[in-house]
Amino acid sequence: MNAFRFLGDMTHLFSVLVLLLKIYATKSCSGVSRKTQELYMVVFLARYMDLFTDYISLYNSVMKVVFITSSAAIVWCMRRHPQVRRTYDKEQDTFRHVVLVAAAFVLALIFNERFTFREICWAFSIYLEAVAILPQLVLLQRGRNVDNLTGQYVFFLGAYRAFYILNWIYRYFTEGHHSRWISWLSGLVQTGLYADFFYYYFLR
């Protein structure tokens, strides 16, 4: 575990906590894309299947449980919570996220480390995570009312992936040259998607 990865995990955790706080404290999810939250829940479920089969470390297992439960809690709030669900602007959140799921799945069938169920699910989750933010970015640019908690949420998500890129560079030079090209390429795409958001966010 290097500092970049730890910082990345912490900013990722913080982004989810900021969103949970916003929804819980304001009892509102205006400006938040439910589709992005559903995609993230699928990402975590597909990637953390090994939660019960492979024990890597207490940290790893605890964080997986936290990410799965928090993303499920956010989706539950936006779908079921009587007060919060009313503030979800359905007609604004129009991105056809099914297309993202299908594209990620097809990519995972073609590009994976081994053609096994586990590896295909893992690659699927990596590809899907790279594009999961799109519905949220569309909502932000359409809405123009980037309320600061949602803006901060996206900012921390971008920072998390940027730290992971530093982590991969660090690991490449210190731990030998394992091929992590699936993570590297999709991580770059993901961080690239945030670049234009950061452009708008800082120029706002």
């Binding site: 990865r5 995990d9 990722h12 990637r47 090994d50 492979d54 890597i56 470390s57 790893n60 964080m63 997986k64 990410f67 480390e113 893992w122 992971y164 982590n167 030998g176 394992h178 993570s183």
Partner: peptide, 10 residues
């Protein structure tokens, strides 16, 4: 070697 592709990242 299994070590090199253990998915130890979140």
């Amino acid at each position: 070697a299994p070590a090199d592709n253990v998915k130890d990242e979140l």
